[in-house]
Amino acid sequence: MTNFALAIHGGCGVMAKLDLTDEEWKAARRDLGRALEAGYAVLKAGGKAIDAVQAAVVVMEDSPHFNAGHGAAMNENGIHELDASIMDGTTLAAGAVCAAQHIRNPIKAARAVLEHNDAVLLAGAAADRFAEAKGLAVEEQSYFTTERRKQALASMKAHAEAGTLAAARESEKHGTVGAVALDQHGHLAAATSTGGYTNKPDGRVGDSPIIGAGTYARDGVCAVSGTGKGEFFIRHVVGHEIAARIAYLGEDVKAAATKVIMEDLKPHNIGAGLVAVGADGSVAAPYNTDGMFRGWVTNDGEFFVASHDEVFRYEP
């Protein structure tokens, strides 16, 4: 039996420590822990990595504390446009949706695309129709909206008007959720979901639904889920780049992931992070911002969650 592993992120667009009360930070960490529990339960029972990453992401999509599903960011018109993708490292099968406006859990729609459609990526209203036809829950736009996202949109518009976008905090800009897993059968999978960045152009699509950029998994190599300014993740094909460094240069997952986040993306001066798991179950979670919501569970069932430097043990 292969050791199994699970790691998640809730985005590198993390608020400054003083932006939330202690209770709000605890609530966010609790939802990270709940996401780990959901994924770990699948893996512990001998389930598939792809089912584990989907289960973990669904919990974070349902939480108001992360930029995906309920609590997703708004575009320039105050509309939620949702992106997600999932990839099975066993077969390289993948599914994704982008610019959807009504799918309650976009990661479920991405999985449905993988399983039931000839396409890899469905966009906009067609993605919404597809999800509804598959029996997935759809919602009015108001479901996705939270007061914090309204405030973030107002703040980013003010920055744009004043010409001070560079001074905006990471928490005002973007965020993403994702999960990577290795199951007991040696198979890898990755999943990513996001509302994109606040005040993004109408119709903009980032890296999260782009296979090889924000999401990538290949058995025997690694699984990757990224968070940050998606345009640069697309240009650097970040997920595949990490896999290539492991496969062709023989780097371990930590060295490859750190190289891409801390060196390759550094000239662009953007917030970036990711979680990755190697074929041996080793986990990497590099980020170049003040913090990144993240968590992982060890093979013997120890849960850990973090937002900034301090790491907390989570008790299920």
Rank of each mutant, 00 (worst) to 15 (best):
V237W: 02
R148K: 14
V283W: 02
E263P: 00
G220Y: 13
H236D: 07
G203P: 06
D300S: 15
S85Q: 06
R129W: 09
V221D: 01
L249K: 11
A93T: 02
I210W: 00
V277H: 05
E76K: 15
A55P: 05
G291D: 02
W25T: 03
V297Q: 11
R245M: 13
V97T: 10
R34I: 12
D300M: 05
A96G: 09
S155F: 10
N75I: 09
T146R: 06
D22E: 14
M262I: 01
G220N: 10
G39M: 07
W25K: 13
V283E: 04
D128T: 07
G239A: 04
G273H: 01
A84T: 05
A68Y: 03
V238Y: 00
G46E: 04
Y40R: 13
R149Q: 15
K134E: 14
Y248G: 00
H159M: 10
F293Y: 14
Q151M: 07
G95P: 02
A284Q: 01
E23I: 04
T194C: 03
A7V: 03
V297F: 10
S63N: 12
W25R: 11
L265N: 08
M1K: 11
D309E: 15
E140W: 08
A110V: 10
F232P: 00
H116Q: 15
T2E: 13
D219Y: 05
A100E: 01
A217L: 02
A127V: 11
R169G: 15
T289P: 06
A285V: 00
A52R: 03
A96I: 06
F312C: 06
Y216L: 04
A168I: 09
H236P: 00
H187T: 10
V120L: 06
A100F: 02
W296K: 10
I8P: 01
P106Y: 07
A167H: 12
I261K: 02
E24C: 06
A243F: 00
G250H: 08
G186C: 11
A68P: 10
S307E: 12
V138R: 09
S193H: 03
A123R: 05
G186Y: 12
V138P: 01
G206R: 03
G135C: 09
D290G: 13
A131D: 04
D128Y: 07
V221G: 00
T194Y: 05
W296L: 13
G33W: 01
A152C: 15
D62A: 15
A284S: 13
Q101H: 14
T90S: 14
A168E: 08
A279Q: 10
E115H: 12
V205A: 06
D290Q: 13
E302S: 13
N3I: 12
L136W: 11
E115Q: 14
Y143G: 09
V120N: 04
V53E: 06
T289F: 09
V283F: 07
Q184H: 10
G278A: 03
D264K: 06
T90D: 12
P267L: 08
I86M: 05
A160Y: 09
G47I: 08
G89F: 08
S171Q: 06
H240R: 12
D183F: 04
A45N: 14
T164I: 06
D183G: 08
H174S: 14
V311R: 11
E231Q: 14
L6G: 05
A213N: 05
I103W: 04
E302M: 11
D290V: 10
I234L: 03
A125R: 13
V205Q: 03
S208L: 12
